Computed example of a mutant assay.
Amino acid sequence: MRTLILPEPIAAYFAADQQNPEALARCFTPQAVVKDEGHTYAGLEAIKAWMAAASARYSYTTEPFALVKEEGFQVVRGRVSGNFPGSPVDLHYRFRLERGLIASLEIAV
């Protein structure tokens, strides 16, 4: 099996402890935007609140298994397993990077 090599900010995002929104926020630019479950979170404070709410509701792990580059984005497929309805599920994480940080992230099935 081949090891998946992710760009540093994306690897840091997946390595960050879901219980530590501050560590996760350090992966993003100050003006970053996250889209998840039909909601948009703009800026670091909103992103930290999104992560804190997600980790309060569910306990989960993500195992990235594929990476493709498309039109300026890095798209990671990851299997998410945890105590949520429909677990496990494969999600697409569409990252746009700027200056070594995540500028945008869209999460979709």
Rank of each mutant, 00 (worst) to 15 (best):
Met1Ala: 06
Arg2Cys: 09
Thr3Ile: 03
Leu6Ile: 00
Glu8Arg: 01
Glu8Gly: 01
Pro9Trp: 02
Ala11Leu: 00
Ala12Glu: 04
Ala12Cys: 05
Tyr13Pro: 04
Phe14Ala: 01
Phe14Glu: 02
Ala15Trp: 05
Ala15Arg: 08
Gln18Phe: 13
Gln18Ala: 15
Gln19Tyr: 13
Gln19Gly: 13
Pro21Gln: 11
Pro21Ala: 12
Ala23Cys: 12
Ala23Gln: 14
Ala23Ile: 11
Ala23Pro: 09
Leu24Asn: 13
Leu24Cys: 12
Leu24Arg: 12
Arg26Trp: 11
Arg26Leu: 13
Phe28Pro: 06
Thr29Pro: 14
Val33Glu: 01
Glu37Asp: 12
Gly38Cys: 07
His39Ser: 14
Thr40Gly: 08
Ala42Val: 04
Leu44Gly: 07
Leu44Ala: 08
Leu44Lys: 07
Ile47Ala: 05
Trp50Ser: 12
Ala52Thr: 08
Ala54Phe: 13
Ala54Cys: 13
Ser55Met: 08
Ser55Val: 08
Ser55Lys: 08
Ala56Gly: 10
Ala56Phe: 07
Ala56Asn: 08
Arg57Val: 10
Tyr58Ile: 03
Tyr58Gln: 05
Tyr58Met: 03
Ser59Lys: 14
Tyr60Pro: 08
Thr61Tyr: 10
Thr61Cys: 11
Thr62His: 10
Pro64Val: 03
Pro64Asn: 04
Phe65Gly: 06
Leu67Ser: 01
Lys69Ile: 05
Glu70Tyr: 05
Gly72Ser: 00
Phe73Gly: 07
Phe73Gln: 13
Gln74Gly: 07
Val75Asn: 01
Val75Trp: 01
Val76Ser: 00
Ser81Gln: 10
Ser81Ile: 10
Ser81Leu: 06
Gly82Leu: 01
Gly82Lys: 03
Phe84Ala: 00
Pro85Met: 06
Gly86Pro: 03
Ser87Glu: 00
Pro88Glu: 04
Val89Tyr: 09
Val89Gly: 06
Asp90Met: 05
Leu91His: 11
His92Lys: 09
Tyr93Glu: 04
Arg94Glu: 15
Arg94Gly: 08
Phe95Glu: 08
Phe95Ser: 09
Leu97Pro: 02
Leu97Ser: 00
Glu98Gln: 11
Gly100Ser: 03
Ser104Tyr: 07
Leu105Ser: 05
Glu106Gly: 14
Ala108Trp: 06
Ala108Arg: 09
Ala108Val: 04
Val109Thr: 09
